[in-house]
């Protein structure tokens, strides 16, 4: 991204498709994000529906990861980053400076590109969140939470006999599922996934995708992916970002068979955009 305010005027694409949802979990309005002088996101308006899986696709540098990171205030850690606009999680304004990010991140969890288990045991990785948020008062309660989370992440059977071994001893795919278990252990409402499978093999990827389908029954999931096939497989809606703008958002089937915008078509069919 390297756009001056002058470029911005020329780059006005109106978002096509269905931006809004009848049952919104997240309402994003007039979102603009800049890193120092460079604007990364231009006036994004979008609803993310309750229990829906929405995929963000687009070329590198299109702003999709920046967009995702706004939703749980991960951009706060970048000094030069300025966020304008509104993101509402139910009735809570996420962009409000007064919002405490610790409880926010319990409600909006995140899974990263590279599995990043803590240098602790498998058990402690999952128990970490519930402990700091005080979600379990007794050991047995915590044990139950750890087991449920690992089960929901589809990892329990593989690790139940070695819960005290370090999380880093697991394979890449298992580590990513451990991170998902850690995320869901604090019962978030929204799970953000930033290219969660890009370092995994196809089998581990298939397991995570299967997991996403199951998790969508209880959680709202926003996933950034470079794999268009993955977006096509897992999401209900797909949003296409281009040069920091939300170009199109529509039902995934619509996007992949008959997209409304030429830029979307060019991207998903591998043409010169």
């Amino acid at each position: 991204m390297n756009l001056s305010p002058d470029d911005r005027a020329e780059l006005k694409y109106k978002t096509v498709g269905e931006k809004f949802s009848e049952t919104p979990k997240l309402k994003i309005r007039g979102l603009n994000v800049s890193y120092a002088e460079k604007q990364a996101i231009f006036d994004v308006n979008l609803d993310i529906g309750s229990n829906e899986v929405i995929a963000m696709i687009g070329p590198s540098g299109c702003g999709k990861s920046t967009f995702l990171r706004c939703i749980n205030r991960m951009n706060d850690t970048v000094d030069s980053c300025r966020v304008e606009g509104s993101i509402q999680l139910d009735d809570m304004e996420i962009c409000d400076d007064k919002v405490d990010v610790v409880p926010l991140r319990a409600r909006v969890g995140m899974v990263f590109q590279k599995p990043n288990p803590f240098p602790k045991s498998i058990y402690d990785n999952v128990a970490y969140g519930p402990r700091i948020h005080g979600l379990a008062s007794r050991r047995s309660e915590l044990d139950g939470l750890v087991e449920t989370s690992l089960r929901r992440a589809g990892l329990w059977d593989e690790v139940k006999d070695r819960l005290l071994q370090p999380g880093t001893s697991l394979s890449g795919g298992q580590q990513q599922r451990l991170c998902i278990a850690r995320t869901i252990a604090v019962s978030p409402e929204v799970i953000l996934m930033d290219e969660p499978c890009s370092s995994l093999d196809p089998i581990a990827t298939a397991k995570i995708e299967e997991l996403i389908a199951e998790l969508s029954e209880n959680f709202t999931i926003a996933i950034v992916t470079h794999s268009m096939q993955q977006a096509a497989r897992v999401s209900r809606r797909t949003a296409y970002f281009h040069l920091g703008q939300l170009i199109e958002v529509n039902d995934t089937q619509h996007v992949f068979t008959n997209p409304d915008h030429q830029l979307t078509e060019a991207y998903i069919t591998g043409r010169f955009g």
Binding site: M228, Q229, F256, T257, N258, E265, I268, T269
Partner: peptide
Amino acid sequence: RQPAASDLR
């Protein structure tokens, strides 16, 4: 190729 959109059509 897993074609999409107009290519798929």
